[in-house]
């Protein structure tokens, strides 16, 4: 039982973080905070992938003589590029927030809806 919990603890924390990020995105009105929620969501996905790539007592995937067991390099590659693309898209989202602030004078979702008469 204890082994089972320890073996799945990483997945559960990743899901917990994912849900915290999700909750921030759907329940908070401040656009900057929403972007941070999305980023937390993103980091939780990174955690899930890296958790899957880990091998017990394995080494980092750099071939060295005398080492037999390595972690799985493929998720590392996927996540490495995902991190850099993630910051580029975050920058794009922040740029949109700046334009929204310039156009509406606020970054609170409710007030933007009020100005649009669409709530």
């Amino acid at each position: 039982m204890m082994d089972y919990i320890i073996g799945h603890y990483n997945y559960w924390i990743a899901i917990f973080l994912m849900m915290v990020g999700f909750y921030i995105v759907i329940s908070r009105g401040n656009l900057v905070k929403k972007i941070i929620g999305l980023n937390i969501f993103q980091v939780s996905v990174f955690l899930l992938y890296i958790t899957m790539s880990t091998v017990k007592d394995g080494a980092a995937p750099i071939i060295t003589e005398g080492v037999k067991l390595y972690s799985n390099p493929l998720p590392h590659v996927l996540i490495l590029t995902a991190i850099v693309v993630g910051v580029a898209t975050t920058a794009l989202a922040l740029a949109l927030v700046i334009r929204i602030k310039e156009a509406y004078g606020t970054i609170e979702e409710d007030e933007i809806h009020e100005q649009d008469h669409s709530l």
């Binding site: 972007i35 990174f46 996540i79 910051v87």
Partner: peptide, 30 residues
Amino acid sequence: VMDAVDVAFTEAAVGAGISTVLMIATMALI
């Protein structure tokens, strides 16, 4: 800790470095 050194490297430089700078720059404008 989970043996993903390249990923850790990128995350430290990008997530903790560039993202934070960009968010602070946004806050200065907002």
